[in-house]
């Protein structure tokens, strides 16, 4: 009778086997997202900063060095593509 009254505890069973682990998994993925995926990006940014590029946004030196890095990067990439035999 107890089993019947409590509907064989199916809801509790689903809660423990599906809902709770599911939530934990989602929580784990969210932590993974902020620590590893985003962390990797911020890590790279941190390294760049340490090399000496200031991250202050509107400082003219930054904009200039950003521009210089950008152009240098593009030129480097183009040269890289063009020197590959297949082109």
């Amino acid at each position: 009778m107890n089993a019947s009254e409590n509907a064989f505890w199916v809801d509790r069973f689903y809660g423990k086997t599906i809902v709770l682990p599911g939530k934990k998994l989602a929580q784990g993925m969210a932590s993974f997202d902020s620590f590893f995926v985003d962390g990797a990006v911020n890590g790279v940014a941190g390294v760049v900063k340490r090399i000496g590029v200031s991250l202050k946004p509107l400082q003219s030196g930054y904009v200039r060095s950003y521009g210089a890095t950008f152009v240098a990067g593009v030129i480097g990439l183009v040269i890289f593509f063009l020197t590959r035999g297949s082109l």
Partner: peptide, 18 residues
Amino acid sequence: YTAFGSALMLAGIIALSV
């Protein structure tokens, strides 16, 4: 983030025209 992508794309565009 987007500037990084843009640099790649610009290189691609130039390579295409070459």
